[in-house]
Write a protein that binds this DNA or RNA. Structure first.
Lengths: 210, 210
DNA sequence: TAGCTCTCGGGTGAAAACACCCTTTTTATG
DNA sequence: CATAAAAAGGGTGTTTTCACCCGAGAGCTA
């Protein structure tokens, strides 16, 4: 290890939480907070050559969310290590964040000591996979959730409302028959029996946030 | 104002967030952090004569949640001012917290400066009602959420599954006709149109947790 | 070019959900 | 005790949802 402090940036739209994390990280020896932003776009807009070593990244944010920002970093600055920091422990969020390029995934209810351990592990090994992440990835391998395309996700989102299928068809500018097809193929794919199952699936997997 | 620092305690199960808030409040002149706990029961168990002036109270916590703990404080130590600090901005949470005795309600995405302002206002006036709170209370007066009894909540819980109404009737040991009545009265009470609305309401209001 | 798959769309009938009418039973309360 | 209010159950008909059948066209590819 060299003796330069490790630079950390935080991207989270909850400013109280963000500032709290900033204060906590300042107390960890060997780490320094470089900057903090309330969403991904703000971070990208204010980018300088002075990049952080680690970014703590929230998922749900306005303008540019955690998935998109992590993806952007993977393509433009792959040397920056993204550590996801989210309150969601649903499988889809974790898997999507890892696929986007995150090097680890922590829940927001992690305690400061474990945050420190994860940060150090991240610098040492280049990744930090908690038990939650490992379990989720293995589970996902065994019972892999079918890939849903954009249309299917949009359809599920609309199903999480009081609209009838006919109204959904109008909204999507397709025939009610097509909606029928979407429904049937999703029932089959997701092993569910009716629209309630679709709503539960949508909410459970973060397709529709309440 | 006297020159004794105002004592603040924080009850929140997300320890990273909690410790962050602790660090932030320590930086506010005139305020001191007395203690912090991960849930209401832990706070009550470790109670001494040395009570805080203000408690920052989360809602969703294991063992004893924010509603119960605030209620308990109202009955046992009404001089302690509870300031709710939650990520939920739904009407039910805000109203239930105020009914339980909270003197204010802040969202977790409040910035540190507004937290400071609210704390000071709380000490000066004994309450701090943000625009969010005022708007919600007025809205609630105009469109007050109906009280649901145990049976209705149980029914909603069962509706958040793939069971048909006939199966729900079997499970509840009542006639399908009665279920019909429950459904119709709930549609009316909650101003919803169909079962999807019931599912969304149930999840949104914590009747069914995913 | 024949064959394959995927998306989109259509018809029909059964089952479930929903709306609106009603009566009986239970429970609370003056 | 009387009487109102609430809970439970019933009949009937419409709309929505769901299941299973089918074909047309686009795009890919062996």
């Amino acid at each position: 290890m060299n003796n330069q402090p490790i630079q950390v940036s935080i991207i989270d739209d909850h400013s109280l939480f963000r500032k709290g994390v900033v204060a906590l990280i300042r107390e960890i020896p060997g780490f320094n907070v470089l900057s903090d932003f309330s969403n991904g776009q703000e971070f990208i807009d204010q980018l300088t050559e002075n990049l952080p070593d680690i970014i703590l990244m929230d998922i749900d944010m306005p303008v540019k969310n955690g998935f998109q920002t992590t993806q952007w970093l993977k393509e433009n600055h792959p040397e920056v290590k993204v550590l996801a920091l989210s309150m969601y422990h649903d499988e889809l969020s974790i898997i999507k964040m890892l696929k986007s390029g995150a090097k680890g995934y922590l829940l927001k209810d992690v305690d400061p000591e474990n945050l420190r351990i994860s940060l150090e592990e991240l610098m040492e090994h280049g990744y930090t996979y908690s038990e939650l992440v490992t379990k989720t990835v293995v589970h996902n391998l065994q019972f892999s959730n079918p890939e849903l395309n954009e249309t299917e996700e949009a359809f599920i989102r609309l199903c999480c409302s009081e609209m009838t299928y006919k109204e959904i068809a109008d909204k999507m500018n397709i025939s009610p028959r097509t909606v029928d097809g979407y429904r049937e193929s999703l029932f089959e794919k997701l092993s569910i029996k009716n629209r309630i199952g679709l709503v539960i699936y949508g909410i459970k997997n973060g397709i529709h946030r309440i």
